[in-house]
Design a protein around this nucleic acid. Structure first.
Length: 493
RNA sequence: GCUCGUGUGGUGUAGUUCGGUCCAUCAUGCCGCCCUUUCGAGGCGGCGACCCGGGUUCAAAUCCCGGCACGAGCACCA
């Protein structure tokens, strides 16, 4: 048995379920959706939702609808460029293009039509109560006066809403559930409201009445044939509200799964509108400022989309509220890119030493691009009489120039004691004079960006490439100008 | 306040459906040692958890009851 079926001896209970769990319901032809608001580019938080939806689509060979939920031109005005940003970031993260791309704002006619149907059927009504009044009635489980008016009254108000006779804020369309429901969130919930605000992707002012999320996404999920919704558990009541609406229309609600709240230690709550305001105040350069938890910032720093995606899949989905840290993501990322990343020497705050000693390995030195050889090839150095080392490294006198020589430093000169490693003295990275070019390493440092000036090994450098700076960490080469220092952006250690 | 959800080591998870094989899985983290051409990685060893209280039972992380904690919804935001 051991030989034929060793796995049968394993305890069934302890076998870890690999990757994501199974999806409920009929999975023969699944349609998932990812529905961001294009009021900014995606953040780290979005990437979790997208990663998981996209991965499920891959597992079950289903489809993903990328739907821009952009029906609030007032409180969350869409940024026209963000539609493209998000599509690009979608590809960067998932390695695929969405199967369908839809803008909710293109479906306005459909929402209005469904709303009118709902009112005609007596399952919705136009409510002209003030927010405060309705809040009180909801708390006290009392029907509002608009609720039991004849359908024809609601319909004429509906027309008045659309034509501009009723002012913004003076009427709302509600779904007629019940005011006696134990869960107050479900009591006659609002479905559409009036908004006098221009929409950047809708021509002119042809619409005044806009759907709220719960109504809009319910109509869309049905229209787009969504079979499974995987979303944050803060939307659990949305499921319940929408199920009531589906029941009315005679539709079957999709299967739903939830994930808990996620918090990243370093960033806390991520708010696109707060980031936007901070950018406008000049606190950050732009959306891809390296201090920001946006996908564009991570991408700029050299993170790989597929690795970020795999990280989220690795975490899995549970309804627990979880917190993780950039450290953990970075450790995961470092492990993945390490075998692919060439080494380079970066000597910060360099001091020049004159070597004394003879009979060395000669003026040519060949150092592997990767110590394990996972990247083939070597970096060829020409070594003269002088070398550069970090000032911080010469606080001790006995050091080893990595891959080269054991030395004793004394002032501005250094005596070569041995070419081979003979003891446990600290190994430091260094550069032959002439092999380095000026570079500045920019590093996010809380609310600031620190920059470190140094010499970067000038060997087969390519813009956009990630290097592991020996003894420093991973960084991406962002600029390599003909004149002036090269620009390195910190990735992680 | 009402409603919903979640509680397993520092972090993330497995196990909870159908109680035993769980003095609890795996990963990461942390500590020590080894190796080493940086940092890592790798090898070896170690640390560390079932929210609390009752109950049922020969037996509870798992079932029941009662607490507690945390989070979310109750927006003319998504």
């Amino acid at each position: 048995m051991e030989r034929t079926a060793p796995e049968a001896l394993e305890r069934e209970k302890h076998r870890k379920t690999e990757g994501l769990g199974e999806l409920p319901g009929d999975t023969s032809s699944i349609v998932l959706r990812f529905a961001p608001n294009p009021n900014g580019p995606m953040t780290l938080g979005h990437s979790r939702g997208l990663s998981i939806n996209s991965e499920y689509a891959t597992i079950y060979q289903g489809k993903v609808v990328l739907r821009f939920d952009d029906t609030d031109p007032k409180v969350k005005p869409p940024i026209l460029d963000a539609y493209d940003w998000i599509e690009e970031e979608y590809e960067w993260l998932t390695g695929k293009t969405p199967d369908v791309v839809i803008r909710a704002s293109d479906n306005m006619n459909l929402y209005l039509k469904r709303a009118e149907e709902m009112i005609s059927d007596g399952f919705g009504y136009v409510c002209r109560c003030s927010v405060e009044d309705f809040r009180r009635m909801r708390e006290e489980k009392n029907d509002c006066p608009c609720r039991n008016r004849p359908v024809s009254d609601s319909l004429s108000d509906w027309e008045a809403m659309n034509s501009g006779i009723i002012a913004e804020g003076d009427a709302v369309v509600r779904v007629k559930t019940s005011m006696a429901l134990p869960n107050p969130a479900l009591r006659d919930w609002p479905a559409l409201r009036i908004l006098d605000a221009p929409h950047p992707s809708v021509q002119g002012d042809q619409y005044r009445v806009w759907p709220l999320l719960d109504f809009q996404s319910a109509i869309d999920d049905h229209g787009q044939g969504v079979t499974h919704i995987i979303r944050g558990k803060d939307l659990m009541d949305s499921t319940r509200k929408q199920t009531l609406l589906y029941d009315h229309f005679g539709w079957t609600y999709p299967q739903t799964m939830y994930w808990g709240r996620i918090k990243i230690h370093e960033f806390g709550k991520i708010s696109k509108s707060e980031i936007k305001a901070a950018i406008e105040e000049g606190e950050f350069e732009d959306w891809d400022d390296i201090r920001l938890p946006t996908l564009s910032a991570l991408r700029r720093r050299g993170f790989r989309g597929d690795v970020v995606r795999d990280y989220w899949i690795d975490l899995g989905i549970t309804q627990k509220d979880i917190s993780t840290s950039m450290q953990t993501i970075e450790a995961f990322h470092a492990k993945r890119i390490d075998p692919l990343t060439e080494r380079r020497s970066f000597v910060r705050d360099p001091v020049t030493l004159t070597l004394e000693g003879s009979g060395g390995p000669g003026p040519e030195l060949s150092i592997p691009k990767h110590p394990e050889g996972t990247v083939r090839g070597c970096r060829d150095w020409t070594v003269g009489d002088t070398v550069a080392v970090q000032s911080a490294d010469v606080t001790t006198t006995r050091i080893r120039l990595k891959e080269y020589a054991d030395i004793v430093v004394s002032g501005e000169s250094a005596l070569v004691e041995s070419w081979r490693r003979t003891d446990g003295r600290p190994v430091v990275q260094w550069l032959p004079s002439g092999m380095g070019r000026e570079a500045v390493l920019h590093r996010p440092d809380g609310r600031l960006i620190s920059s470190e000036i140094g010499l970067l090994e000038d060997f087969e450098l390519e813009v956009g490439e990630i290097y592991q700076l020996e003894r420093v960490g991973f960084a991406i080469l962002e600029e390599l100008p003909d004149r002036g220092p090269a620009k390195l952006i910190w990735l992680h250690r």
